[in-house]
Amino acid sequence: MLQYVPGDTLAHHLDPRSKLCVQVGFAIAAFSSTAVWWLGGLYALAGVVLLAGQTPPQRVLRDYAVVLAVLALAPVLAGLALGPPWFRIDPALTSLRAVARIPPVLAVSAVYVRTTPIRETRAAIERLVPGRPGQLLGVGAGLVVRFFPLVVDDLRTIRTAMRARGGASRPVTDRARRLAVQGLDRTLARSDRLAVALRARCFAWNPTLPELRFSRADYPVTALGVLLALTPLVQSAALSPLLAVA
């Protein structure tokens, strides 16, 4: 399950603000072009980020298996035709190049989640977005990161319980209905209990958050994030002839 894992990697030692900067910059850069050489660069950079967080690529593949399966469907559907030749290569390739931009973004986000404690994320968001909106965003992000793995665990438990009593022999629609109803029921019950636990421990909108401090490594990382965020401008100004050729 995608969640924070304590460690001693370069990514663990970076300030969450510089990691967020790279995360945002990378996403902007990823969606600025579908050129093959550009995609190659994105994948190479995502590989470096994975190395910096010592996050195995197979771990990312497993964590995002459902998302990646849906993405893989897109080019197939785009290439399908209702008459001969039944499958067209060009639209499928266009779609493939479009969806190929998403996996490296997911990889970078996986490194962020695995190397950043929730409360540091909250502190970073509240520093970057001042006032009540920042508090809301920070608390929201923290709760989602905390709550999502529990919900996924609950769904897995329900599926296992159904299988244990021969549920696999039932129609898919019946299984899906039971999973949805039971999943929703448990999610609501769990959120209820979490809310009570938060109140019992004096949940506050302005708690003492961890101190954030830029180290020397954070400056080049932040600069990289800014550079990535500016790539659409750079491309349109200087690289448009190259992109046209590609």
Partner: peptide, 14 residues
């Protein structure tokens, strides 16, 4: 207060 199911009261990963 310590709740019946410890997992329900955890709000962090570590």
């Amino acid at each position: 207060m310590v709740f019946q199911h410890p997992r329900d009261q955890f709000v962090a990963a570590t």
